[in-house]
Amino acid sequence: MSNHPVVLAITVLFVCVGAFFFLVGTIGILRLPDFYSRTHAATKCDTVGAGSILVGLAVYTGLEFDSLKILAIAAFVLLTSPTAGHALARAAFRTGLVPWTRSPDKGGVG
């Protein structure tokens, strides 16, 4: 824990970036047209949003064992969340879900 203004500024920056990605990702889940793009948005939320917030918290904690744990969590999130997104999208594609396209003649819903 440190109250040095630089540390606080870096923490706030990281947490704000994370919160921004969560916001954009959530809007994406609600607004994007099909499964693939929504999976894309959700994965961005988890990966960049959670990762950035965790890094910010680690900076705030300072050089301690706890910050190492937080960084480990961030590393695992960075590994697992894209994998989950990949597995979801791949399973959907292999089972024949057609991606959305703007032109109606390519099988999308317009």
């Binding site: 590994l79 597995a87 399973a91 292999r94 089972t95």
Partner: peptide
């Protein structure tokens, strides 16, 4: 399952298993 297992998923599960 009709979908073959993705090498990415396999690699990640194998990498994380020891942890």
């Amino acid at each position: 399952s009709a979908v073959p297992v993705s090498p990415v998923t396999l690699f990640i599960v194998r990498t994380l298993a020891p942890f």
